Computed example of a mutant assay.
Amino acid sequence: MSTITSGGPFAYASSLAIDVATMSLVPEADTVRNETRLVFDRITAQLESKGASLDDVIKTTCYLRDESYLAEFIEAYDQVFPSHSPATHIAILGIAGNCRVQIEVVATRTIPSAVNTLDREESQ
């Protein structure tokens, strides 16, 4: 499940590795590392649909179900951002289904100056 909202020079994307039909963690998210990678793959696709990429991310908000996942999550997170470090906030709290990771990002994007509308799409 992913959501993308964009307006002006910003794109806001969020995702988690959930199957919306079952509201359960998808099978390929068998470790926190793989779940983190999958979430970022989904966010990457959402950002690209709005003319942005992970290189454009300036802030992340990351939610983990349990503090014990933190080290494995940070290892995977650092692989996603090898060349820059967006501002990051990590919170420990309950997440939908049996997911362990949920991530939201804010990215800057280059758009034609004539475009300044807010649009919202939801996808799986």
Score class of each variant (00 low, 15 high):
residue 117 T to V: 06
residue 107 A to D: 02
residue 45 A to Y: 01
residue 111 I to E: 05
residue 49 S to K: 10
residue 22 T to S: 15
residue 14 S to K: 08
residue 124 Q to D: 11
residue 16 L to M: 14
residue 71 A to S: 14
residue 108 T to Y: 01
residue 97 G to F: 00
residue 67 E to K: 15
residue 21 A to T: 04
residue 97 G to M: 04
residue 65 R to S: 12
residue 18 I to Y: 00
residue 106 V to Q: 12
residue 43 I to R: 08
residue 34 N to M: 08
residue 92 I to W: 00
residue 39 V to P: 06
residue 42 R to W: 02
residue 54 L to I: 06
residue 43 I to M: 10
residue 32 V to K: 08
residue 44 T to D: 13
residue 93 L to S: 11
residue 97 G to Y: 00
residue 122 E to Q: 09
residue 1 M to P: 06
residue 22 T to E: 10
residue 81 F to K: 13
residue 5 T to F: 09
residue 30 D to G: 14
residue 83 S to H: 10
residue 100 R to V: 00
residue 54 L to C: 03
residue 76 A to I: 02
residue 99 C to R: 01
residue 64 L to F: 08
residue 27 P to Y: 05
residue 79 Q to E: 13
residue 100 R to T: 00
residue 69 Y to H: 15
residue 33 R to F: 05
residue 92 I to C: 07
residue 65 R to W: 02
residue 88 T to D: 03
residue 41 D to K: 13
residue 71 A to C: 04
residue 119 D to C: 05
residue 72 E to C: 04
residue 82 P to M: 13
residue 97 G to C: 06
residue 55 D to G: 07
residue 60 T to R: 09
residue 58 I to D: 03
residue 61 T to V: 12
residue 7 G to Q: 12
residue 3 T to R: 14
residue 17 A to T: 07
residue 10 F to Y: 11
residue 119 D to L: 09
residue 90 I to D: 05
residue 75 E to Y: 00
residue 39 V to A: 14
residue 108 T to R: 14
residue 89 H to K: 15
residue 24 S to G: 12
residue 35 E to C: 11
residue 3 T to L: 15
residue 25 L to F: 00
residue 110 T to Q: 10
residue 40 F to W: 05
residue 118 L to N: 09
residue 117 T to L: 06
residue 27 P to R: 14
residue 117 T to S: 13
residue 98 N to H: 02
residue 12 Y to Q: 11
residue 60 T to C: 15
residue 66 D to T: 12
residue 50 K to D: 08
residue 72 E to Y: 03
residue 68 S to P: 01
residue 88 T to I: 08
residue 12 Y to S: 13
residue 84 H to C: 07
residue 100 R to M: 04
residue 9 P to D: 09
residue 91 A to W: 00
residue 105 V to P: 02
residue 32 V to H: 09
residue 100 R to S: 04
residue 25 L to A: 11
residue 88 T to R: 15
residue 48 E to S: 11
residue 59 K to G: 01
residue 43 I to K: 06
residue 8 G to Y: 01
residue 44 T to N: 14
residue 46 Q to R: 10
residue 47 L to P: 01
residue 5 T to K: 14
residue 76 A to D: 03
residue 104 E to W: 01
residue 50 K to E: 15
residue 9 P to R: 14
residue 123 S to P: 00
residue 16 L to Q: 13
residue 55 D to A: 13
residue 5 T to W: 08
residue 34 N to A: 14
residue 6 S to M: 08
residue 71 A to I: 06
residue 102 Q to D: 01
residue 100 R to Y: 03
